[in-house]
Structures are given as C-alpha cells and as structure tokens.
Amino acid sequence: MRNLFTTYRVLAMIVGVLLTVLVFVAVPLKYLPADGTSLQTTGDNLTSLVGVAHGWIYMVYLVVSFTLARRLRWSWSFTGLVLLAGLIPILIFWVEHRATQKVRAEHPELAAAGV
C-alpha cells in the first residue's frame, strides 16, 4: 500500500514534468521559430518525443491513481480531479500536494516514510 502511494507520487511528478516541458517548451519551439531552422526542428522532435512519453505514462498514472483512490476510499469528485490533473499543466503538482496532505491526515501510517 505504501509502495502504491509512493508510485503514485513518482508518476505524478513525471507526468507533471513531461506536461510542463511539452506545453511550455516543446510546443512553442515547434510553432514559433521559422520553418526549417534547427530550433524549430528540435521543437518538432521534442514535441513528438515528450508527447508520446506523456501519453503512455499518463495511462499508467491513470491505473495507479485510480487503484489508490479506490483503496483509500477517496470521494468520486476528488478521484476525478486526480485523474484529470494529469492532462492540465501545473495543476497536477497542486493536486499531488493535496493528495499527499490528505493521505498524511487520514492514513498517517502510509505517509510516515514519505518525503
């Protein structure tokens, strides 16, 4: 159970970082510089790479966080927020923070070894 919680936190961080890089670095680089420049090519490649990585890791994130939410009996609205947070830049960091606080308050035995 504690492993599941740790896995959730790690996945949330990875999904969050990938999404931030995708939306604030890769996509602007793909569309802002002139076509054919090396900066634009880099942005194009980075968008594909990070986009695909985010897509597949987000799927794992969905399964892990849904399993965690059911085991900890989170409400359906909070569960929905946790699942959708993986698609909205920055929001996921805040949701992960809220989820960690929630676990610490409700299940102190799980968060004991947490950071």
């Binding site: 695909v52 969905l62 399964v63």
Partner: peptide, 27 residues
C-alpha cells in the same frame, strides 16, 4: 515513424475508452 505514432495513438485512445467503462462500472 510518424505513421507508426498515429497507430499507437489509435490504440491509446481505445485503451482510454476501455478505462472509462471500467471507472463507470466501479462507480
């Protein structure tokens, strides 16, 4: 490779669809 990406995205969407059914059934 760009076309392979499209195929992988297609599967990914269908897996998401399956997951939506799973969540709904649990609900």
């Amino acid at each position: 490779t760009s076309h392979l990406r499209n195929l992988l995205y297609a599967f990914q969407w269908w897996i998401f669809g399956g997951f939506a059914i799973y969540i709904w059934q649990r609900w």
